[in-house]
Nucleic acid binder design. Sequence first.
DNA 1: CGGAAGATTGAGAGTTCTCAATGCCTGTGG
DNA 2: CCACAGGCATTGAGAACTCTCAATCTTCCG
Lengths: 256, 256
Amino acid sequence: MLNRLHDPVELLQRKLERVAALTSDDRRALAALPLRVAHFRADQDIVRQADRTLQSCLLIQGLACSYKIVGHGKRQIVAIHLPGDMPDLQSLHLGQVDTTVMTMVPTKVAIILHEHLGGLFANPHIATALWRSIVADAAIAREWVANVGRRRAVTRTAHLLTELITRMYAIGAVKGDSFELPITQEELGDALGMSVVHVNRSLRALRQQGLISWVGPVVSILDLQALATVADFDADYLHFGATAQGATASSYSLSM
Amino acid sequence: MLNRLHDPVELLQRKLERVAALTSDDRRALAALPLRVAHFRADQDIVRQADRTLQSCLLIQGLACSYKIVGHGKRQIVAIHLPGDMPDLQSLHLGQVDTTVMTMVPTKVAIILHEHLGGLFANPHIATALWRSIVADAAIAREWVANVGRRRAVTRTAHLLTELITRMYAIGAVKGDSFELPITQEELGDALGMSVVHVNRSLRALRQQGLISWVGPVVSILDLQALATVADFDADYLHFGATAQGATASSYSLSM
DNA sequence: CGGAAGATTGAGAGTTCTCAATGCCTGTGG
DNA sequence: CCACAGGCATTGAGAACTCTCAATCTTCCG
């Protein structure tokens, strides 16, 4: 069962089916896709900013992020990638990545050559699904601009956690009200544009309000509705609407 | 001549040719594209967040932005659109926009129905170019996350101005060292995640360092190289590389 | 047990925000 | 032609938020 959960083709199929219907022909095309599985330790670069590349990767198991280094060595994480995501799908169209993609924990990825990936576009449903997947990633980036630009520390932190549990839920990685998020507060700070110290204090505030608990790698959302309200969260930007009911901040739940 | 500059098909053609080569067949397909020209006054919404839509628009003349409203009514501008840009091209693939697109000055746009736009994808070169255009927009959003998240006010402001003159240059809207940017400091603040007051002070700092001048709607970059350095700017993320020479912060110029 | 990485806390410094007043420019009505 | 209103830019000053520095604590692991 775990096997199937972490089978590259299964994962890709499930991801694509969340945004577009696939026929059995489509599934055959996916199953025939030549791919190579690679294992990375934690904190390893998968591709580096400005690299020219002829392949893209599909996250199978683990956790990764895309980041940029700005002057004076500060780091900004601009995306967090969960299993099923394709962090550098864009490189198919630009041949070059503008961020470094790094693992955050030991991670398994499937490598797909652009020449094979491009072939999938011959298949209309798959092309549509890949399109949507890229466009949805862009929508997340836009929401992050708003999050980092206009929300206060506690709200901003809550917003990211709510986004993550929502995306985790969509891939079946939420058990009860908990999910694994084995990242450090420093990484969280780099994703939120905040210092470690302030991340720590924001998390404490959320804990003291009884909204979350975070023990080891396990984050539990104790009151999702309240958290979503504090977070100023509206799931629309994730564009899960194609298959799921729209959820709004005023009545937000994962179980529907 | 001005006529040709503002002809929708010309514009689209030029935009696409910046990222992919077009054949005469391609040009014919573009010329045959049914489109309707619409005029908007300043500060008018073109499409609103969460709208379902069956069309996309191409900016012909003027200036627009995409924004989100976060809790407590604050606004974050997540993208600035110049002539030749397609602010809601993504809606072709999601059927819905996650931002409001608004004009910042009187603006002329071409409306293209999705049914016609989708047809263009039958044409490989055009499809490639549209792909790249969307992916490049996403790259800009990622850079904005880093800009807003990790750069200080003055640097952040300088970075946006440098990005804008670079993009303006690419569409031929720079005369000498100047371009028109008829937006208020409040709008600039909403794009930078800063208060108006602080925008004003950051601009003053740039002015006092002899880097820019801003008179009425005309911004002049007095020392582009120095500005790019202050801005921590590296043009790679704009992905103009396909046709232009790469420009780096250490030796940055528009005239090449 | 020692060491290392990460979490937590305190305190002062620095940046940015908000509030409020003033100045500047432009278009309009008298 | 001029006074005036409105929108925007500019400046001052204090408040609020976040950062940095530094110390301590906890946990994990060899």
